[in-house]
């Protein structure tokens, strides 16, 4: 049985259509990578799934239940979301930030159980040392781990991640992806992750969804989706795809000249 089903979802901002006929099925303990160029609708899709945005058409079912019929707190117990960027204006310690993930589970007082959960997650992500530090003092990589920890203390069944590795150095990219992969395997959580880096997607995702202009262009395992033809068509980039231990490894070469859509290169050539 699918954990999460997205059926014919359509979304538009004012009159600009962003998502069209999007259908997804996500199994338990599966990691789905959503790739596509800027403006393809990756982030919008993730926000629709977490009900931050309300799709104009279509259904989103979590455990066969329409998320529109669920109370906000109820949904928050089942789905965690890690936005691309957040800014904490006022001071908050890492501990308090991670404890916020318990919000859907508590009334007003946080109990011993909430404290224990928070400590457990801090330990799992190996950021206990940071517990009493202010979130604004941390590096981007450390902050990202804190935000993942906050989503995990929610104890969700489904984790939604919007560009979890943007702004991170290569070490933190690998660490963060490793953490997410581990959680998916160990806790049986399903994850949907919008990601720009095709090689990270290829390496860590079980399945890849390639989007273009609000539609699903291709879906399937990394080998079948990340092909030179698909990349050329969707990104307008000529790329070489090598085999790296059974996973495709993409080496982008150059932007393709397109009819009508002049690339920088073609403009230079014309001059």
């Amino acid at each position: 049985m699918a954990k999460l089903k997205v059926k014919d979802v359509e979304f538009s901002y004012a009159s600009v259509s962003v998502l069209k006929e999007v259908c997804i099925e996500l199994a338990e303990s599966e990691m789905l990578g959503v790739v596509g160029p800027n403006g393809a609708g990756k982030s919008t899709l993730i926000r629709c799934i977490d009900r931050i945005l309300k799709p104009q058409r279509g259904l989103i079912l979590l455990d066969e239940r329409d998320i529109k019929d669920m109370r906000l707190m109820e949904l928050a117990k089942k789905m965690g979301y890690i936005p691309q960027s957040t800014s904490q204006v006022f001071p908050a310690t890492v501990f308090d930030t991670v404890l916020m993930g318990r919000r859907p589970h508590l009334d007003w007082r946080s109990s011993e159980k909430d404290t224990e959960k928070t400590l457990e997650t801090l330990q799992m992500l190996n950021i206990e040392e940071l517990a009493m530090r202010d979130i604004n003092e941390l590096s981007g990589g450390q902050q990202q781990k804190v935000f993942i920890a906050r989503a995990l203390t929610q104890e969700p069944d489904v984790l939604l991640l919007d560009e979890p590795t943007s702004n991170l150095d290569i070490r933190h990219q690998l660490e963060v992806m490793g953490i997410i992969k581990n959680i998916v395997i160990e806790k049986g959580i399903s994850a949907i992750m919008a990601i720009h880096d095709l090689n990270l997607a290829s390496r860590y995702a079980d399945r890849i969804l390639m989007m273009n202009s609000g539609k699903i262009f291709a879906a399937g395992n990394p080998v079948s989706v990340l092909t030179p033809d698909n990349i050329k068509w969707v990104y307008g980039v000529e790329a070489e795809v090598n085999n790296n231990n059974g996973r495709p490894y993409i080496v982008p070469i150059r932007p393709v000249k397109q009819n009508g859509k002049g690339t920088c290169e073609s403009k230079w050539n014309m001059q």
């Binding site: 109370r71 916020m100 919000r103 906050r150």
Partner: peptide
């Protein structure tokens, strides 16, 4: 004071607060 938890969560940004179940 009763709403103080929700205001705390909103301090982390609207999207995060929504994902934590706050209207």
């Amino acid at each position: 004071i009763w709403k103080s938890w929700d205001v705390n969560v909103m301090g982390a940004g609207d999207e995060t607060a929504k994902s934590l179940g706050v209207n």
